[in-house]
Amino acid sequence: MLSAFWIVLKRDLLLALRRRNEVFTVLFFFIVVISLFPLGVGVEEKILTKIAPGIVWIAALLASTLALDRLFSSDFEDGTLEQLLLTPHSLSVMVFAKIVAHWLLTGLPLVLIAPLVGLLYQIPVDSIAVMMLVLLLGTPVLSMIGAIGAALTLGLRGGGVLLSFLVLPLYIPVLVYGAGAISASMAQGVSIQPYLLLLSAFMILSLIFAPWATAAALKISIE
């Protein structure tokens, strides 16, 4: 069971290594969205610092859904997904491996680039650390929930837009507490622990249920 996890994880990482541009596209999309906001709402420092937490998260949500489209579709198009369903391994485990690979390639880079956002929006150093931490807790949830949507919309016309429409509302809890934690860290004397606990709870719950639901959705979609 574990071996199936490693085989799929290694395969997806190897594939990404051969097509590095896809990873960078998502990252640059994130940076572009982040840089557009000051141009739209004005460059006043107070406003920027105030809206930064929300912007970081909305950009992360958008970048994450953008990347989701490719999570299963390339395997679907060349028939390898069908073969995964026919291997004598648990589909949930292999799906989990694919989601982990996807997060390593699209979620983790967002966490690592976060300090740059902090500089652009004049966020204090302590809050940048909090931002990285909540992104680390929250982006896996985005990948997990998003995978269900990606599996459901597999191979549909206009699947990408439909996928965003389906999953973005489901991201709201992560958005609310992810952005809330960063704002709280900038306010004086507010504990961010409850935010972190809630985000961790979301992560654990999504780790338990999402691979299973995604596997069920894939079986439906591939019929």
Partner: peptide, 22 residues
């Protein structure tokens, strides 16, 4: 469909497919 990845070599494709076959 051939169920092979275009970015992987013939050997890598065959290796992954047999490994997943158990």
């Amino acid at each position: 469909y051939n169920a092979i990845k275009m970015d992987l070599t013939a050997l890598e494709n065959l290796r992954i497919n047999t490994l997943l076959g158990g």
